[in-house]
Every structure is written in C-alpha cells, then in structure tokens.
C-alpha cells in the first residue's frame, strides 16, 4: 500500500502587509482526515491552496512525500485532488467533455466507463451531455468531486466540500470521505461542524496569527 505524508515547516503567508498566518508546523499522513478550521477570512483556503501547490508561501516549506520520496512541485498535480467552490471548470463543455479533457491533459487514457461509474455515483449520468453553464451550483460542486478523484490521487484537499450541496449530496460526500480516507490523506478546510466532526485532528488557522497583529487589527 502506498503512503503519503505532508509536512508544513514554519509556513507563513502574508498578502502585502497583512499577515494571514505565521509559523505553521504540522505533519499529516495518509489514512487520516485532518481539518483546517477558522472563521471566514482566517486563511483556511489560502492554506489549502499553498498545500496544493497553487499558491506560494511567503516563507517556510511544504514537503510532500509519496512512498517516502519527496514529490517535486512539477509532479504535484499527479498526486493531488482538489475540490472547492472557487475551483471553476469549463462552462462551454459538458460534464463528460470536461472529464475527458481533464483525463487526456493529465496523460490518462480517456476511459468512458470510468467516467460513467463516477457520474452514476454522483447522480449526474443523465445530465452528462449538458453544458456546465446549465448546471446548478450543487451539480457543479458534484462534478468537481469527480474531477478531483478521476486520476486516483493520494491526497485529497476539500475546501468547503459541502457548500451548495443538499442533504443527499452531503451524505454522498461524507460517505466518500470516509471511504477514501482508508488509504489516502484527506484535508478538509471548513467551518461547518458536521464537516469537521469527521476529522482526526483539526488545525485552527487563527491560532497561527501573531497576537500583536490581532491586537492591531482590533484597534
């Protein structure tokens, strides 16, 4: 069984003069669900983006290891599955086309059977030929899960995974998270208690904001 681990070393991020978090040190390993918690604007999504390699930290390091070998940043996309409300797929393509394109760009054999089984799981098969611009926000959220899972990644980063989903959709997602956590590393960035209840350990992003900065902000 493959193992995946993630280490955050003195991770700091600021936008201009605004410090978001400072000196985060943490270790995560596969087979577990971890949470990034915090109020709105606390930096959960920023941390999720840094971990996924989409955003650079101001200082510090994010080390990804697959089977104890460090994953270089150029190869990171092969190991990561990412879902968030701000991840946008191509509206001018249908759900099936989006998935076929994503598979071929990843260098995978575009497998219609695999896509069918995922679309069935997320109850989207009947609408597979419809352009994404005609999808509701909940349906778009569901297609993002397929986009994140289709290449069988070792680490799944879910930022606000249940946003826009109805109760049935949430149940499917929670079941999926439980299932995938058996052999994958899962990170949930959320402020929903029901999401965070799944997590083994939760990292509160606001705890890593320097005290004096918080005082200054209040003043």
């Amino acid at each position: 069984m493959s193992s995946y681990s993630l280490t955050l070393q003195n991770l700091t991020k600021s936008f201009g003069r605004r410090l978001i978090f400072k000196d985060i040190n943490a270790e995560f390993s596969s087979g577990n669900i971890y949470g990034f918690a915090g109020s709105n604007g606390s930096g959960k999504s920023t941390l999720a983006k840094i971990v996924s390699g989409v955003l650079s930290p101001s200082s510090g390091k994010v080390i990804h290891q697959f089977n104890e070998a460090e994953v270089i940043s150029e190869e990171l996309h092969k190991h990561i599955g990412f879902v968030s409300p701000y991840l946008i797929l191509y509206d001018e393509f249908s759900a099936e086309e989006n998935l076929l394109h994503s598979m071929s760009i990843r260098g995978l054999n575009p497998n219609k059977e695999k896509i069918k089984s995922f679309l069935d799981d997320f109850n989207l098969y009947d609408r597979r030929k419809d352009l994404l611009k005609g999808y509701s926000s909940g349906m778009k959220q569901r297609i993002k899960f397929i986009f994140a899972l289709i290449h069988n990644p070792s680490i799944l980063i879910f930022d606000e995974p249940t946003s826009n989903l109805d109760n049935k959709g949430k149940e499917v997602v929670y079941k999926l998270i439980e299932e995938e956590s058996k052999d994958k590393l899962i990170i949930l960035a959320s402020n929903e208690d029901s999401d965070l209840a799944l997590c083994k350990t939760t990292l509160h992003v606001e705890d890593y904001l320097q005290l004096e900065t918080r005082v200054k902000d209040k003043v």
Partner: peptide
Amino acid sequence: ERGTTMTLHLLAKPST
C-alpha cells in the same frame, strides 16, 4: 477571466 487558471494548475505541469 473565467477563473479556470486554478483548474489548469491542478491538471498539468507548467511546461505542458
């Protein structure tokens, strides 16, 4: 403009 830059980030390496 469409906000799909992040999608590309997650799909392939920069040189691709």
